[in-house]
């Protein structure tokens, strides 16, 4: 079972605020999941090759450039100032 602190740490890594009531619920839920996931420790018969994704081919190093959309980019921005995207003051810049 994850400690209160571990849950808080993960929640901050994920930038998800959780209330004190939720902490216990998460401790409980995460434990159940991790107990299931820990089964992977029983699996040991496999070789070193790893599969990042089932890619059909390598990257094409001769590929040409291609267009992607660049219109109305700022149309969904919650807080704008002129052409800039606004956020609260960034710390430890």
């Amino acid at each position: 079972m994850l400690t209160k602190e571990e849950v808080m740490h993960v929640a901050h890594l994920a930038r998800i605020e959780i209330t004190d009531e939720e902490i216990f619920k998460y401790q409980k839920d995460l434990k159940v999941l991790f107990d299931a996931i820990d089964k992977i420790k029983e699996l040991n018969d496999f070789d070193d090759d790893k599969m990042i994704a089932p890619w059909e081919k390598d990257f094409d190093i001769e590929r040409k450039s291609v267009e992607v959309n660049k219109d109305n980019l700022l149309s969904n921005v919650p807080k704008k100032k002129g052409n800039f995207v606004e956020v609260p003051v960034m710390v430890n810049e």
């Binding site: 993960v10 929640a11 930038r15 998800i16 995460l30 999941l33």
Partner: peptide, 19 residues
């Protein structure tokens, strides 16, 4: 992210971050 995501999504993000 607390108010924007539902429980299932938040839980999976939490677990994924931990893993």
């Amino acid at each position: 992210r607390r108010f924007g995501f539902g429980n299932e999504v938040k839980r999976r993000i939490m677990v994924g971050s931990y893993l």
